[in-house]
Amino acid sequence: MNVPHIPCEVAVINVEKSFWQRLSVLDWIKTRWHLILCKNCSEYEKDSKIIHRILRSMRNDGMHNHLGVEEIEKIKKALN
């Protein structure tokens, strides 16, 4: 199979895009092929995926972590 080569700069941008959107089939194949051949980009993908997950989880925590009125009252009661 003759897969067109893409440079590292394009591969890493495609990696970032792939966390948020579906790449076209051709872009996906070109990127995967690049990642098989390029250790640096493959390592970048692995680390970037971890950073992506932590950023997403930090965002999710921030949204749901506020105390409700009842919970605040529960703490107040416990102190009295």
């Binding site: 925590d61 972590n65 506020h66 105390l67 605040i72 703490i75 102190l79 009295n80």
Partner: peptide, 25 residues
């Protein structure tokens, strides 16, 4: 004293809760 304690809770409880949740989920 009760009123001061309640003020303390109003002011800091939410922040402390977010801190705790970020660590223990």
């Amino acid at each position: 004293v009760q009123s001061k304690n309640e003020e303390l809770v109003e002011e800091h409880a939410d922040y402390l809760f977010q801190f705790a949740m970020s660590k223990i989920h």
